[in-house]
Each structure stands twice: as structure tokens, then as C-alpha cells.
């Protein structure tokens, strides 16, 4: 199990036992789930209230299905930890954050300075996503924070 290297939450680290999406529906006491690229994230929507940790696996950083999974959960109101694991690299961090991830456990730990620079890179965003950031059009028309 890779260590959580970056976390953008103040609550306690969740260490609950992780189950698969398929098993989650049946295990009434499970509170942590791991999503693989082909899984259906909407299967979790009936159980959001007991979910505390969702781990999304990126076996290869070029497979962007986990980005959609993350946004779908955030759009449905999931507010617990959303952790990206696997082939998580410096240059994907900004997009992952925008899709709603708030914890990162890369398989290979990232260079801290590079990661911090990547996360601070973008002055704004063109489109709304799952990070609550006001899109440029909102800033332009005085609706932004």
C-alpha cells in the first residue's frame, strides 16, 4: 500500500478496510471503497452516507476514466476523502485536484517541489469542475469569488 503523500483535508486519515465496488453494496458496515477504471461509480450513489473514503486506482496515468468517476461522485454530493492511487504523476496533479481528488498516494513518491509547483501552476480555470473553483467566465462577469 502506497503512503498518502499529499492530503488536502483536515479530518483524520481514514484507515478503514477497503472493499471493491461490487462488494460494497453487500457489506453494510464497509466505509471505504476502491474504484477500478472499469467500475461504475454510480453504483455507490445509494450508499454515500456511509462512505468515508473512496480510492480511485490509476493503473496507467493515460487512462482517464478515474477522472470521470471522481467528478460523478462529487457531483452527487460525496464529501469524504477522494484519494488517487497508482500511476499518479506530477503533471496530472492539477487535473486530479480539479476533478475532486483531495488526497494522493502515488505508487512512486513524487518530488515535493515539483508537485507543489504543479499544484500552484494555474492562475485560473476555463471551465467549472469539481473543485469549486469559479471558471473564467464567472470571473469575467463578476460572479466569481
Amino acid at each position: 500500500m502506497a503512503e498518502v503523500q499529499f492530503r488536502f483535508r483536515n479530518d483524520e486519515l481514514v484507515e478503514d478496510a477497503m472493499v471493491t465496488v461490487d462488494a460494497f453494496g453487500q457489506q453494510a458496515n464497509a466505509s471505504a471503497v476502491r474504484i477500478e477504471p472499469g467500475d461504475e461509480p454510480r453504483d455507490l450513489l445509494p450508499h454515500l452516507e456511509r462512505l468515508r473514503l473512496v480510492e480511485v486506482n490509476f493503473p496507467a496515468f493515460t487512462d482517464g476514466r478515474g477522472l470521470s468517476a471522481a467528478r460523478i461522485l462529487r457531483e452527487a454530493g460525496y464529501a469524504g476523502e477522494l484519494r488517487a492511487v497508482g500511476d499518479v504523476l506530477v503533471d496530472q496533479l492539477a487535473a486530479l485536484r480539479r476533478c475532486g481528488f483531495d488526497a494522493f498516494a502515488p505508487e512512486v513518491p513524487l518530488n515535493e517541489d515539483d508537485a507543489r509547483a504543479a499544484l500552484a501552476r494555474w492562475p485560473a480555470a476555463y471551465q467549472p469542475a469539481a473543485d469549486g473553483r469559479a471558471p473564467l467566465w464567472a470571473l469575467r462577469h463578476g460572479q466569481g469569488a
Binding site: G64, L67, Q92, A95, R98, C99, W122, A125, Y126, Q127
Partner: peptide, 13 residues
Amino acid sequence: RQWSTFHPEFCAL
């Protein structure tokens, strides 16, 4: 153009 530029969900299609 603006919507698709650096779209975070669609950068690894």
C-alpha cells in the same frame, strides 16, 4: 475552445 482548454476530466481520453 475555452471549455475544452485544459479540461481536467478529458485530458486522458
